[in-house]
Design a protein around this nucleic acid. Sequence first.
DNA 1: AATGAATGAGGTTTCATTCAT
DNA 2: GATGAATGAAACCTCATTCAT
Lengths: 206, 206, 206, 206
Amino acid sequence: MANRDIEALKERKKPTQERSRALVDAVLEAAARIVVAEGLDALTVPALCDVAGVSPGSFYQYFPHKEAVLYALLRRHAEDVTARMLEVLARAPSTPTPALVAAAVDAFLAAHRVDPALHALLGRVVASEAGPGLEDDLLQRFELGLVALMRARPAELRDRDPEVLAFLVIRTLEGVVHAAARDRAGLLATPAFREGLVTQLLAVLA
Amino acid sequence: MANRDIEALKERKKPTQERSRALVDAVLEAAARIVVAEGLDALTVPALCDVAGVSPGSFYQYFPHKEAVLYALLRRHAEDVTARMLEVLARAPSTPTPALVAAAVDAFLAAHRVDPALHALLGRVVASEAGPGLEDDLLQRFELGLVALMRARPAELRDRDPEVLAFLVIRTLEGVVHAAARDRAGLLATPAFREGLVTQLLAVLA
Amino acid sequence: MANRDIEALKERKKPTQERSRALVDAVLEAAARIVVAEGLDALTVPALCDVAGVSPGSFYQYFPHKEAVLYALLRRHAEDVTARMLEVLARAPSTPTPALVAAAVDAFLAAHRVDPALHALLGRVVASEAGPGLEDDLLQRFELGLVALMRARPAELRDRDPEVLAFLVIRTLEGVVHAAARDRAGLLATPAFREGLVTQLLAVLA
Amino acid sequence: MANRDIEALKERKKPTQERSRALVDAVLEAAARIVVAEGLDALTVPALCDVAGVSPGSFYQYFPHKEAVLYALLRRHAEDVTARMLEVLARAPSTPTPALVAAAVDAFLAAHRVDPALHALLGRVVASEAGPGLEDDLLQRFELGLVALMRARPAELRDRDPEVLAFLVIRTLEGVVHAAARDRAGLLATPAFREGLVTQLLAVLA
DNA sequence: AATGAATGAGGTTTCATTCAT
DNA sequence: GATGAATGAAACCTCATTCAT
């Protein structure tokens, strides 16, 4: 799965029609199934077309290249997670830090409780292939939100660099939750796991 | 980069001669360079052979398949990291937890300061491709060491599950450090980053 | 030319369209030409594609593997021969044994007069590579027909085992005719050759 | 297994030394084993060297190319068979035709009762690859002997062409016996099979 | 707008053969 | 004379992508 021109992602027809939207959904659905069941290498265009019930010609009318499918999946996931996190941050002003952190952890865990295997995989894709730049606009909104939040509570921030702390918090969440999703799916719903995460992040933030 | 028979890794000739050892090293070196510079998909056998100055025939005399190169790289890294961590743990009896955690973080950071881009890739991508079982014997020795350590300090462990805590600690280290290695290499040497990590892990462990 | 999964033969697309039928024919034609001119080892996929004017991609859309071409050629030949022989056997009830044997020999010779070099190769090499099971359904129908015929003439069969006799007859025909096709193509049309074969087989059957 | 320069066969060192003779024997032995057990395609130089316990360098000191091994095996078999047949023919003057034919069939069957699978395979090799020219000097001595014999019995030959008859006899023997060796090894020792062959050949010859 | 046949580049791997030691 | 590491040509086959229908 090579790195590909991310800018090309918008070049193709936007699936505004109802039928086209269905096609795109079928493809993404199929991609998720294939990738979870057989791994990234099984995500070939023929396989995708077979599972999605779509012809290669149609496929290439909505995706500029194969990688676009993964990127779309990734964006979907990133949007979901970011939305949940921003929602939590939005409640920040009226919430004490410990409750806020707990809520954030819960939101993050909730986002990863649906199809954890897929999310773990997507995490890997981000880590390796797409690298920075794909989901960064989303991730950064979260990071910026977090930084803003911390700056708003200088007593807890003390004289530390909020950007470093935000980086730590977000990457810890991602790293640990994806690792659990991949290797110990059972942990995801465990109170001990959640408590640990909350403790850890609270220590950083306050 | 498909998952491949890990058992086959020992089937090929061991490079006992000096000449062969040089060949294997050249290949690993080349693989690291390619992967860091152009990504996992650029790691093809022809590319590998070109960069390493080796013929495909020779390559396949020492590696059962292409993936074996990555596994070898991974094992190398895992051995390095584990050795460092176990060394720290060995000093445990006479060291208070905060100093221990700081030492562990330092050791982990030190291990990732050489070729951080490669390590980020290895840690997150290959480890999961190869699945559990490749570096597990190494990783688990570290995890078990950590669990033992925590059980030896029941006052700090309280009634929490040491295995969950060990998982959190190790995956946090991996996730955060690899993310930094990939996206913000500058952070790796920052005191703020190190402090943050220590604080975080200490919060979990004590 | 390794033995290959015979079951896979039906996995590929059946050439229903006119265009595809032409492709398959071109490939078989090319295979016959190559094999006769340069031997079995010259039958490589690149050579096949070059001669047939087909791309490897297209080739593999209609043949599951290289061997399938030979199998198809073999089946074609076996079907031709078997059809001719069964046709002769069908006339059996009203025909005395000598005339029947003469007719069978003539039919067999006629089948091998077109492209004898190819048939010699197919008959002796491929039949055994593919092992029993590829043309067996065809060959056995002939063998069974022969057995039935002999049982219907117990005076001539006497107390001998018809299956052994059928084996002798069929393998003699094959062996001798293929040898002639290969080494002395001139013989195939010779009355002396034909008479000799008829005499021989008649001696076995009556 | 490509066709190769047969003339090159004598280019290499003749194994006159005792040690060399052992090497050549080991290689031929190994080749027979491989070919019978796994088929012609498994006869690779590495496999041959492994099984024979010989290094490739040594191998190429005694064989000009891989094919030479098969040719040597073939020559060995052809020499064995021809010797047996000529021995039978040598007794001809004092023996009536039926007894002679029976003796010839017996000799031929005896030659193929040792390692029939190998002989069936060699028969195929002759048929397909080496073609005419490899064992022909041997085969022709047999054929010529047979022709001479028939000419010596003009009453039985009548006005038929002895060369055609010799061809029929020899190819029948080869074809039928090799087929039996390959597909129905059990038949080789059967009286019914032997009787059938004798009857058949006798009908041609007398 | 959809289809799916065709393309052909290119990847992995093996193996016959040579040659330095 | 023997070894076995090195070579590199070449085979098989897949797959992303295009384009005629």
